[in-house]
Design a protein around this nucleic acid. Structure first.
Lengths: 92, 92
DNA sequence: GGTAGATACTTCCAAAATGAAAGTGCCACG
DNA sequence: CGTGGCACTTTCATTTTGGAAGTATCTACC
């Protein structure tokens, strides 16, 4: 399998890269992500579970039943790819 | 809509970026793409139609009922993004 | 001239992913 | 003890993806 295909197995599903993009700035809570992205809560839960399993992000407990989602080193390493795609869409 | 979201509207669907990756080297025919990727012929037809409509690639007639698919400038501009994703998956 | 093969699809249907809405469990605060 | 915020789960409809088979056109061969 090509490197690209391997990458898409992880960040290919819908919303995955958009979640990572939001977290590049700072950790966010579940509700914040949902409001920013406007996706169904079930899908957000699924994507976060998968991205955590892939080592892209991790859960950061804040208090009682509140936690934030933050990027790992591997997650932050997606910045060049995300910026390249964003720049591509700006061409014309 | 963020630049990233706009890019994913075009290259987000499954197989789309993998098709572009193959065409970065040289134009290929329909059957070549299908054999290389191993996807259903109906989906290849759909993806090619969408990528053509988005100005990423174009049909290049060869002879009678044979044609090749080649990248436009806009399609070739995806190279940095594709390489960034491929490199990311190689980390560890 | 008929037939077999190559090429580029389309059509049909099942399976999986995605999306919208409502419900659950937990804790803090008044 | 009730109300509200937060982080989900469950359920079900819709859309996307996937596999298999069929169609149309031209070419080359017998």
């Amino acid at each position: 399998m090509s490197g690209l295909a391997a990458a898409l197995e992880i960040v290919g599903p819908r919303w995955a890269l958009l979640i990572v993009e939001l977290l590049l700035d700072a950790p966010l809570r579940y509700g914040d992500l949902q409001r920013e992205l406007g996706l169904g809560t079930n899908q957000l839960a699924t994507r976060l579970r998968e991205l955590e399993a892939a080592g892209v992000l991790y859960r950061l407990p804040l208090k009682h039943n509140t936690r934030a989602y933050a990027l790992t080193d591997r997650g932050r390493a997606l910045r060049p790819a995300i910026e390249a795609l964003a720049r591509w869409s700006d061409l014309e």
